[in-house]
């Protein structure tokens, strides 16, 4: 968005003002001709890689999803039946629902927390250190959380041991199958909040101090400062974060895999499956015939979901970029 905004002035300079412009960049200037010549050498390599690494595999995945295939050997054409079967499969719907829960519930909680922390950290002493500490959970491999969960929440684990002196003799069954998913949501919030706080803070730090000085002189309170200065000036950063979170949340896999299935030695209970876990278990469970067709169909549905959500988010969050 901001790139376009910056391009426009140069276009405007090249284009004679009197002529009505048909399209933004269609001008007769030599500069744009030069630009066009540079299109192939500049865009070509990137486009090549993109096509080879993303477009072709995606096309292949669509093709596979229309077949029954065990990964090698004969493929049988089944048309759209993999897709219809998926939408009749309660487990797939449940997995997709779990993905949406992660996206929305964890997303909202995490953004509220991140934003709150950003505001607190903005004028806190030692904020650089605080920022590193908050970021730290994001650096830790999900495997560690999986192992730690056992250490903390096993029947004789740390949490229950700590609860004992308080008279809790019958603590909740933390790791029971039905409690795993909330625990995963909690862990995810813990893991990602620091990451988005860091990005948001970078956005907030960019705001020149004279706006705050203005606020102070105008007698604005903290809420007004937030509403009229901080929010509008960090809105594009928010938009980017929302898109990033949407994309990464639809792919959440390893934390579920490790948290549930006995730290990776089994398969997690279906109550915790996300669409990504469903895809993996369908293709690579290892203990039953691989169903690559159904697995790729599920992956394609996830891709469609991300695309729709990202487009929607970009629409909802569209504002004029404020240059400052």
């Amino acid at each position: 968005m901001s790139v376009e905004a910056r391009e426009r002035p140069s276009d405007a300079v090249n284009a004679p003002r009197s002529k009505p412009r048909k399209r933004g960049r269609e001008t007769n200037g030599t500069l744009s001709q030069q630009r066009r010549k540079l299109l192939i050498p500049f865009v070509g390599p990137a486009l090549t890689f993109y096509v080879v690494l993303f477009i072709i595999p995606t096309g292949a995945a669509v093709w596979i999803s229309l077949h029954n295939w065990a990964g090698s050997g004969p493929m049988t054409w089944t048309g759209l039946s993999n897709y219809t079967a998926l939408f009749q499969d309660e487990l797939f719907k449940k997995s997709l629902w779990n993905t949406l829960l992660l996206l929305v519930v964890v997303g909202v909680v995490m953004f509220v927390l991140s934003f709150a922390m950003t505001l607190v950290l903005r004028d806190m002493a030692g904020r650089k250190i605080a920022r590193s500490i908050i970021f730290f959970p994001h650096l830790i491999n999900a495997l560690v959380y999986g192992v730690l969960a056992g250490f903390l929440f096993n029947p004789g684990g740390l949490v229950n041991t700590l609860l004992k002196p308080f008279g809790v003799t019958e603590p909740p069954q933390w790791l029971a199958q039905d409690n795993l998913f909330p625990l995963i949501m909690l862990t995810l919030t813990f893991m990602t909040t620091g990451y988005y706080t860091t990005i948001l803070m970078a956005g907030v730090d960019r705001i020149p101090p004279y706006y705050y000085e203005d606020c102070a002189m105008a007698g604005a309170n903290a809420w007004q400062r937030l509403r009229y200065v901080i929010l509008p000036l960090t809105w594009d950063v928010f938009g980017v974060c929302a898109v990033l979170w949407t994309i990464s949340s639809v792919k959440i896999f390893e934390i579920v895999w490790i948290f549930g299935g006995s730290s990776g030695s089994g398969i997690p209970p279906t109550q915790t499956w996300t669409a990504a876990v469903y895809t993996y278990a369908t293709a690579f469970s290892g203990e039953s015939l691989p169903a690559y067709g159904a697995a790729t169909a599920s992956a394609i549905i996830s891709l469609a979901l991300v695309t729709v959500l990202v487009v929607l988010i970009r629409r909802v969050m569209r504002r004029d970029v404020i240059e400052f």
Partner: peptide, 21 residues
């Protein structure tokens, strides 16, 4: 070992039986 049978049908139900649900 039918495709997905153990992971999606048999194990979820047997878990519930075995775990008292």
């Amino acid at each position: 070992a039918f495709p997905g049978y153990n992971e999606k049908v048999f194990w979820p139900a047997s878990d519930k039986l075995f775990l008292g649900k």
